[in-house]
C-alpha cells in the first residue's frame, strides 16, 4: 500500500542524504556515530531471517541494502569523527540496549531466540535516534541536511502507522508489538517534528531550544 511504499522510500532517502552529507563534507560533524551503530544492530538483529525465510525480492534487496549501508555509514563516520575536536556524541547507549533486550524478553511472539531478537530490534529501533537528538540539542544548531536526514528517518516509521491501520482493515492483520514500538518511535520524534515544522517548513534557520 501507498503508506508503506512511501515509508520505505523515506527510509531510503534518509540514508542517501546521510551518506551523501558525510561524503561531500568529508566530516561526521553533527551526525551521531552511536545512533548509526544502534541502527546497524537493529538491522542485523531484525533481518537475520534473511538466512532462513524469503518474502519477496523487494524485501530481500531492501534488507541487504539497509544492513550494508548502515555498516558503511559506521565505517565512514569512524573515519571522519576522529578529526572533530568537540564531538558531542556522549549518550550512554547501554541505557537503551539493556532495557530493549529486557522488553524483548518480556514482549515477543514466542520465547524463541529469533523472536526475542526480532522484538529487541523493534524496541531498540524505537529509541535509536535519541543519541542523535541529544547531540543536536547539545550543539544547539545543525546543518540543514542533517535535519532533513533525521526528518526523513522519522517520517518512515510515522508513515508505517497509517500502513498498519490500512492493513488492519484490508487484511485483518495487526501486530501489537510492531505498532506499539512504532508509536513510541514516532512520539520520540514528536518534539523534533514540531521544531522541524516551525523552523524548516516555515523557512527560518534551525536550532533546538
Amino acid at each position: 500500500n501507498i503508506f508503506r511504499i512511501a515509508g520505505d522510500l523515506s527510509h531510503l532517502v534518509s540514508i542517501f542524504i546521510l551518506i551523501n552529507t558525510i561524503n561531500v563534507k568529508k566530516s561526521a560533524q553533527g551526525i551521531s556515530l552511536k545512533t548509526n551503530i544502534l541502527y546497524a544492530v537493529v538491522f542485523v538483529t531484525r533481518y537475520v531471517d534473511l538466512l532462513y525465510s524469503y518474502t519477496s525480492l523487494y524485501n530481500t534487496l531492501m534488507k541487504i541494502f539497509f544492513i550494508s549501508s548502515s555498516i558503511y555509514t559506521i565505517v565512514m563516520l569512524k573515519k571522519y569523527s576522529k578529526n572533530i575536536q568537540q564531538y558531542n556524541d556522549d549518550f550512554k547507549i547501554e541505557y537503551l540496549i539493556a532495557p530493549s533486550f529486557v522488553l524483548g524478553l518480556i514482549f515477543n511472539h514466542g520465547f524463541k531466540f529469533s523472536e526475542i531478537l526480532w522484538s529487541f530490534s523493534l524496541w531498540l529501533e524505537s529509541v535509536s535516534i535519541l543519541p542523535q537528538l541529544f547531540m543536536l540539542q547539545k550543539s544547539g544548531e545543525s546543518q540543514l541536511l542533517t535535519t532533513h536526514y533525521i526528518f526523513a528517518l522519522g517520517l518512515y516509521r510515522a508513515l508505517y502507522i497509517p500502513n498498519w491501520i490500512y492493513r488492519y482493515f484490508a487484511e485483518g492483520r495487526f501486530d501489537k508489538l510492531a505498532i506499539t514500538t512504532g508509536i513510541i518511535q514516532t512520539l520520540v520524534y514528536s518534539d523534533f517534528f514540531y521544531v522541524y515544522y516551525q523552523k524548516v517548513i516555515k523557512n527560518i534557520g534551525f536550532s533546538l531550544p
Binding site: 527510509h11 519477496s56 524485501n59 531492501m62 526480532w118 492483520r173 508489538l177
Partner: peptide, 10 residues
C-alpha cells in the same frame, strides 16, 4: 483478528 507478526515489513 489475525495477530501474526508483520514480518513481511522492513
Amino acid at each position: 483478528k489475525n495477530s501474526q507478526p508483520l514480518k513481511d515489513e522492513l
